[in-house]
């Protein structure tokens, strides 16, 4: 009896030690970036793990030194793009998910199959073609690039309706039927009944589409090309690690990374519940 208890305690100890080591490995890079963002020495190559001196200059430089890499401008660009593409994609995703979940029409099955097939193509295989199309309609010059990026980020979102559809599927149909008997049109049911009842998924959709422009890097790079004044934060941070900038900008990169990560980390930690619900809902069925 006693040995069984001992064995359990020993196992428990081992598990906790393993977890502690793993947690350290997972937290280590994040910890390191935060340290680097406060480091006073310049350059990417350091001989010590902990900085020799701490400073806030990296954050200050990020917002004041706008001659080479204009971080405040990039920040504003990304913010504008994020706000508009968030409005458009939320509208697209929710309305498509609502139609596919609640209404029956001839195009329903073909649409879902089409979304599945399109999902198998490498996402940016068509990126070059998208660039040519946007160029043909004159959206790749000057401030029109912002519009082009907004369209890129929101245009295809209606193909990833699955999580929102899964949510709408779980709502009882009886509510819709009752409203229909009371004389509601389907539009009224959508805006006055379904949406207010699905706050979690609305919030989830708004936030995921708001985050997308902050973390996408490759689309922005192909569409902006050399137009440095239209860069988004992601390209800016990537630029800071290029050979010609890395010595001066490395610690600023860390500062920028921390600044971008804080709001996203906050949103993600608040939202992980919905994230998990949406995914497991999809797995179940």
């Amino acid at each position: 009896m006693k040995s069984a208890k001992m064995k359990r305690r020993r196992n428990n100890m081992i598990v906790h030690i393993i977890l502690a080591i793993l947690a350290a490995i997972w937290v280590f890079p994040i910890f390191w970036v935060i340290l680097t963002s406060f480091r006073a020495e310049k350059g990417s190559y350091v001989s010590t793990f902990f900085p020799r001196a701490y400073t806030l200059d990296n954050y200050r430089k990020l917002f004041t030194d706008t001659t080479i890499l204009n971080f405040p401008k990039m920040f504003m660009n990304t913010l504008i793009i994020a706000v508009f593409s968030c409005i458009l994609s939320t509208f697209f995703v929710l309305s498509v998910a609502y139609c596919l979940s609640r209404l029956r029409f001839k195009f329903r099955r073909p649409y879902m199959n089409m979304a599945m097939v399109l999902g198998l193509f490498p996402g940016f295989m068509s990126m070059v073609a998208v660039y040519f199309i946007l160029k043909a309609v004159g959206l790749t010059e000057g401030s029109m690039i912002r519009l082009a990026l907004i369209l890129c980020y929101s245009g295809g979102t209606a193909l990833s309706f699955q999580i929102a559809k899964g949510f709408f599927d779980t709502m009882p149909l009886a509510i819709d039927e009752a409203a229909m008997i009371d004389g509601c049109t389907r539009w009224q049911i959508f805006t006055k009944i379904t949406l207010p009842l699905s706050k979690p998924i609305v919030i989830y959709t708004v936030l995921t589409s708001f985050i997308a422009p902050w973390v996408d890097f490759i689309f922005a790079k192909v569409i902006c090309r050399a137009n440095a004044d239209q860069y988004t934060v992601a390209i800016g941070l990537w630029k800071m690690l290029e050979k010609e900038y890395i010595d001066n900008w490395y610690t600023c990169f860390a500062a920028g990374a921390v600044l971008v990560s804080i709001p996203i980390a906050f949103l993600f930690l608040r939202l992980q519940k919905y994230y998990v619900n949406g995914l497991t809902g999809g797995v179940k069925g």
Partner: peptide, 14 residues
């Protein structure tokens, strides 16, 4: 979960 709260491109560059 903290590590997936950091944008993926940032953690990869790090």
């Amino acid at each position: 979960v903290l590590s997936c709260a950091v944008p993926m491109f940032v953690s990869l560059l790090i």
